[in-house]
Design a protein around this nucleic acid. Structure first.
Lengths: 273, 273
DNA sequence: GCTGAGCCCTGAAGCCGGGTGAGAGTCAAG
DNA sequence: CTTGACTCTCACCCGGCTTCAGGGCTCAGC
């Protein structure tokens, strides 16, 4: 009945409360195209029937739903619930990230004596540990290591092994695009074929302990590198991180021990390289 | 002592855990420039002293602090606390916005019988009300009106006036870039010079009631416009919104009455325009 | 028929915070 | 001298639009 009632883009913009430029953009990306385009003038003609779609788009965009997802909802209404639940999850993670940032910002604000790290020099003894390798983009190192440790944990449980020390991970000092290393844990018994194992780097190493949020871990590395320069030494192998209180959800008790094997000045490079 | 120790961009990138491309970018926007640039080769030389700054930048960027704010912090350490508190507030509003979006998304998911609006035709009688004008960008209409009503509220309190009906606002139907209109409230007495007052639009009007989150208000407008088309009428003056349960923080009881003055077919346009 | 106002069109460029790639120059080791 | 790793600049890409320049269409008034 109202099918012949057509609106120029300006009328449609006022009705839908969307800017004209945005409507043209939505036409370009095929999110919402006019019912008809005059073939001679190129004028866009919208119909009243298109208004609910425009309103839905405006609502969803205001909620931050990306146009691509909205297009999926419009073309296939049956997937709407799935897509929306997915968006819901996205917003929830965003909120969680916001909370975490808030905490870290507060740390920054209250943290005055933050960068006092004591770097010691120690000798690492050779150790054979249960290990699980990973290959991760540098940007996802921290969550990826956490996941790898979780998998190692269940592997140990299945094998009936008992952990005799803190969880850890080792990987090259220089983080390339993709970091390959392994998560590890010392265990009570090593049986061939039963479990993947690996030797940990050994020899002289610089070590320091970082407490609290992993976000400030680079500061600890900075201290280690400064000490390295001071001694005129250079890195002698993959770095080693040991995590304690990993299972404790309270972030403030979380601690990381960093061990960086070194070649001291006037020394031959470590064998095996 | 270590002042002569210089790092090429690659070394500095590994130490600071920032991508080389980002370091070059930060140089371009003068957020973090190398201590020295070789005049013949153009090679950037960073010093160890710049590492803490790089680490600080990385931390703040990870928290979503924009580079411009970080630059302010770096050039003037005394403003750091101010800037950080400001960022803190920004994140808090972000989280709040996320929560609101979540609620609205849930409304979308649960809302099935959403778009049933009954549009009635009524006659508005002329009324003189206490008023406070506003001029707002269309995008900030809703919060701006809320703020204007708050100012009107305190003006009424100062003048010892008593409100005799719901808060409201009126503004043109076609939202231009800047919307000029006024917030109003009917009061018990009108005395010249005592309070700004204004007449409300009168005559025949279409009206409907919207309940719940303001985010879905456009649906109500859509229903009003559809009714307008059906009657072959056109808008006859600024639209009028009346808000009840505005003071109640519970969003689900919030209701808006929309009144759109109209010119009915075959009628002369309203006088006064 | 002409003019001007107010619509409308297209295509290109700009915004942020970088990421990516081409093509060329530099440096140290063998 | 060559090789390979490193560096440089310049320019273009992303999303989700907005804005601008340069034009065409339509209608009312004269």
């Amino acid at each position: 009945m109202t099918e012949r009632r057509e609106l120029m883009i300006g009328d449609f913009a006022r009705r839908s409360r969307l800017p004209i430029s945005t409507l043209r953009y939505y036409d370009r990306i095929r999110l919402l195209s006019p019912a008809l385009v005059d073939p001679t003038t190129g004028y866009r003609r919208y119909t009243l029937e298109q208004l609910p779609a425009a309103t839905l788009i405006a609502r969803l965009r205001a909620l931050g739903v990306p146009p691509a997802s909205i297009a999926r909802i419009l073309t296939d209404r049956s997937t709407a619930a799935t897509v929306l639940l997915h968006e819901r999850q996205r917003i929830e993670t965003q909120i969680e990230a916001g909370r975490r940032r808030l905490r870290q910002l507060d740390e920054l604000l209250t943290d005055d004596a933050q960068s006092t790290y004591d770097v010691d020099i120690v000798t690492l003894h050779p150790r054979e540990v249960a290990a699980l390798p990973f290959l991760l983009p540098a940007a996802e190192l921290e969550p990826g290591v956490t996941r790898t440790i979780a998998r190692l944990r269940s592997a140990l449980r299945h094998g009936g092994h008992r952990r005799t020390g803190p969880w850890g991970a080792t990987f090259p000092v220089d983080l390339a695009d993709n970091v390959s290393g392994f998560a590890f844990a010392p265990v009570d018994r090593i049986e061939p074929g039963d479990l993947d194992t690996a030797p940990l780097p050994a020899g002289r190493a610089l070590t320091t302990i970082h407490r609290g949020s992993p976000a400030t871990l680079p500061l600890a590395y900075h201290a280690v590198f400064a000490s390295l320069d001071q001694r005129g030494a250079c890195p002698g192998g993959p770095v080693l991180e040991e995590y304690t209180n990993l299972d404790n959800p309270n972030e403030s008790t979380f601690t990381v021990r960093i061990c960086l094997p070194i070649n001291e000045p006037g020394e031959h490079p470590a064998p095996g390289h």
